Each structure stands twice: as C-alpha cells, then as structure tokens.
Amino acid sequence: MGQAQQAPGPHVRGQGKQRSNPTPKGGRNLPAATAVGLGMLFLVLGGLLFLPLGFVLITTAFAVFGVWEIFRALEASGTRLPIIPVMTGTVGMPLAAYFGGLESLLFAMLLSSVAVLLWRSLEGAAGSARSIFAGVFTLTWVPFLISFAVLPLHTSGGETPIGLWPGGVVPPGAWQTATLLLLVVSNDTFGYLVGASLGKHPMAPKISPKKTWEGFSGSIAGALVIGVLASVFVLGKPWWVGAVLAVGMVAAATAGDLAESMVKRELGIKDMSSILPGHGGVMDRLDSIVFASPVAFILFSAVVGT
C-alpha cells in the first residue's frame, strides 16, 4: 500500500492543456486508484469474514503476482531468480500458516530456502551466490512476511475451516487481521491526501522524494482515529490499544514503503508493473502490508492476546 505521503509533483510543460486529466499532483489517477483500491478491500474483507480459506487464496494470489513482478525486475537487471522453488514456497507458506500455524510457516520458509539453494546448485556456479541471495530475499520479503496476516486465522486446538467459519461466528483472529488491513489502508489514504496537498518536507529525499513528513503526520492522525474506533467497536478493547496499533502500523507500513522504493531505485524502475490501474504493480500495494503484518502479529499477541 505504497505511494502514500506524497508531496506535489514538479511542474510539467504543457500542463495547462491537461487539466481534464484525473491524475492529481501526487501522481495517481485518483478515480482509477479509488475504484481498484475499494474493490480489492471489499474482496479481501469479504473472504476474511465469510470464507477464510478464500482470503488465504487471495493473499496467496497477491503474493504470487508480487513475486512474479520481482522476478521480472531482477531478470531485467541481470539477476536470475530461481523462480520454480521460489514460486513453490510462495504458494506453500500462506497455506502452511493457515493450516499449521507459526511452526509450519517457519518450517515452510526453511524448506523453501533449502530448495532454492539446491535448485541453483544444479545450474552451475556462475552467478549462483547472487541468485541464491535474491531467491531467499524474495521468499522472506513477500510470502513469509505476508503470511503473518494469515496466522491469526489459524485455529489453535481446533479444526481450521475449509469452508465458512463454524457456526457463522467470526473469530477474534479474523477481526485482528481486518483491523490490520484497515490501518494500512488508512495510513495510505490519509498520508496521500495530506502529503499531496500540504507536503513540503521530504522524509527520505534520496530514496523517495515524494514521501513527506506532513504526509506521515496525516497517516498517524488518520490511523489513530481508525485504530481507536476499531479497538473499541471491533476488537472490544480499550482505546489505547488502538492507539498503539495505529502507531505501530504506520511506522511499519512507512518502512515497507521506503524499503520498496529503495529496491526500485536500485533496479532503476518507477513501478514494479502497471497491472493495477492507478496503483502500479501488485508489489506497489503490498509493500506496506508485508512489513505491517509481522508487526501487527507481535502487537496483537502482546497487547490484545490471541
């Protein structure tokens, strides 16, 4: 959920002739971005609250597309990613987290890393170190981290459902994941709105010049409101729990956004792809979530309980 907290873009020649263009100063086609963003949010929340395995499969699909974008970007820069073992691990890790919990997720990550090492060893020594590092890095960055959004859905001491939630009752873990998603979306939305209109002071000009401190402040303020409301009315916890979650999610989401910007700058690309109108690539949407998911899992375990 990147590209938040953006400062106004530079003046472009001929801009006066393009006033009907829906792309605002922040650099997005706002109507397309809003439609795509809301569609993805309703799809994900619908699966999460009514068909948990559907949510897991949607999460897995996003991870697969994200890894494919990374594969293409690395290949264009001369790094060969061992795509078969990496994709196998990408599909396996969210399912391992859902059906087996944390221990299964860690084992799937270890097994996938070993598979990358063995697969690349059979292809010869030339460029193997760089290829193995890229494979393990990609496995960690996308499927492993995003699987922490699935972990709260694992039912400890009971049967993890394949169909609807048993009895139609949504468990606390699903509401926790829903809160995570709402906080990441609020970080992106409020950061973008404030940063695009008021942003003047870049946070990291050498990595992402459009990310501003004003936008970051907007993210904090918006997430605090959403976090407090979600804590009281969704999680049934004190207001301060929502405040802690909000600050943690904004910090993690911003770090994830800047981390992806750093990778893209190193690879010399603006967006990972153009598959999502108004958003760029799938990784341009997942960058915040992959960092926020493990932080949310830790915070929920510490201040909410599972």
Rank of each mutant, 00 (worst) to 15 (best):
T79P: 08
A61G: 10
M40A: 15
G27E: 01
F71I: 01
S20E: 15
V36C: 10
L41K: 00
P10G: 06
G26V: 01
T79E: 10
R80A: 09
M40W: 10
V64D: 09
L74G: 06
A61T: 12
A73H: 04
G26D: 09
F50K: 10
A76I: 02
L38E: 02
G66Y: 01
V64A: 09
L30W: 03
T79V: 14
G14Q: 08
F50A: 15
A63D: 07
T60Q: 11
R13V: 12
L43D: 08
A35H: 04
A33W: 00
L74T: 04
L53I: 03
W68L: 15
A32N: 05
T23E: 14
R19Y: 13
E69M: 04
R13T: 14
G26L: 04
V12R: 14
G14D: 08
L43P: 02
L30H: 09
T59Q: 12
T60F: 01
L30E: 11
F50W: 14
T34H: 03
K25T: 15
L81D: 04
N21S: 13
A63P: 07
F50C: 13
L41C: 13
I83F: 15
R80M: 10
T34L: 14
W68E: 13
L41G: 11
L48F: 05
P52G: 03
G66H: 02
F65M: 12
T23S: 12
F65V: 12
P10M: 09
H11Y: 14
P31R: 01
V12N: 10
G14N: 08
V64M: 13
R80I: 07
F42L: 14
I58D: 08
I58C: 08
A33N: 09
P52H: 03
L74E: 04
P82I: 00
L51Y: 14
P82Y: 00
N21E: 11
R80V: 06
F62I: 10
Q15V: 11
I70L: 13
Q15I: 07
F50S: 14
R13L: 13
A32F: 01
L51D: 06
A73R: 00
A61D: 03
G14W: 01
A33C: 04
V67N: 04
P10I: 08
I83V: 13
L57P: 07
F50D: 10
F42M: 10
G47Y: 00
P31F: 04
L57R: 05
I70C: 12
I70V: 14
A76Y: 07
I83P: 10
F55I: 07
F71V: 07
R19M: 10
V44Y: 09
L48N: 05
I58E: 11
L53H: 02
P10N: 11
F62D: 03
G16Y: 07
F50N: 12
N21R: 06
F55E: 07
R13Q: 14
T34M: 05
H11D: 15
E69I: 02
P10E: 11
A63H: 06
K25L: 15
F65E: 06
G26F: 01
T23F: 03
E69P: 06
A33V: 00
V56A: 06
M40K: 01
F42K: 01
V44T: 13
